[in-house]
Amino acid sequence: MRTPRQILAGAHTIAVVGASRDPQKPGHWVPKMLQEQGWHIVPVNPHATVLFGEHAYARLADVPEHIDVVQVFRPAEEAEGLVREAAAAGAGAIWLQEGIASPKARQLAGELALDYVDDTCMGAERALADMVHGGCEPECPVYHGIVPVPESSPEPADAR
């Protein structure tokens, strides 16, 4: 079984099940950051047609290209089914984001010879390793997350 860093270092294409249209959610900004760091992101969301400038697929089974890792932003109750779908799609690994864990999915992944990571943020793992696709020396701008939008505040009196 490969470590999370080995999985990420060996990946090129990451299918993101539960990719979000909401830029404030980790299901949006984590894959976007990975894309900005050089990984090919394939969004899987039945309610979107395009995310991150890429065609979004309704189901993992609809993705027509090879998938190295399936990144999951869905509830733990769906993890077992997603492990089966990842294996059927030919992925080498499944990665459940931070806060998502399933002992049954872990066991099934082992039975299906899939590398498995749960309850770990792929973006944090990338940042801790200072990794970009293809190596460990950043060659592109470092992503610093979302800049919070300040709440409306009255203009200062001298600005009027």
Rank of each mutant, 00 (worst) to 15 (best):
L128H: 14
D62C: 11
P64H: 04
D130C: 09
M131C: 03
E98T: 11
A88R: 14
R126A: 12
H28T: 01
G110S: 09
Q24E: 15
R106E: 14
P64T: 02
A19N: 10
Q97N: 09
H40K: 15
A157F: 11
Q37I: 03
Q37Y: 09
V17R: 08
V16H: 07
E85P: 04
A157D: 09
F73T: 06
V132P: 02
D158G: 00
F52T: 02
H55E: 15
A109G: 06
S153Q: 12
Q35C: 00
P148V: 11
L8Y: 07
I67C: 02
I7C: 13
S152L: 15
L96H: 07
Q6Y: 04
E155V: 10
G90V: 04
Q71H: 13
L112V: 01
Q6S: 05
M122K: 04
R74K: 08
V42Q: 14
E78L: 13
L51C: 05
V50Q: 03
A109Q: 14
V30M: 01
P150H: 13
D119T: 06
F73E: 02
P46H: 14
T13L: 14
H144E: 11
W95M: 01
G18L: 00
R74W: 00
W95N: 02
T13N: 12
V69M: 12
R160C: 01
V142F: 07
A159P: 09
P156V: 11
R106T: 05
Y116P: 02
P31R: 04
G27T: 08
A127M: 14
S152W: 15
Q107V: 03
G53S: 01
E80I: 12
F73R: 07
D118W: 12
S152F: 13
C121G: 04
D62E: 08
G81T: 05
P64R: 01
I100G: 04
C140M: 12
V83G: 03
G92I: 03
E98L: 15
E85W: 05
V117P: 10
G10I: 13
A127F: 13
L60V: 07
M131Y: 02
F73A: 07
M131V: 03
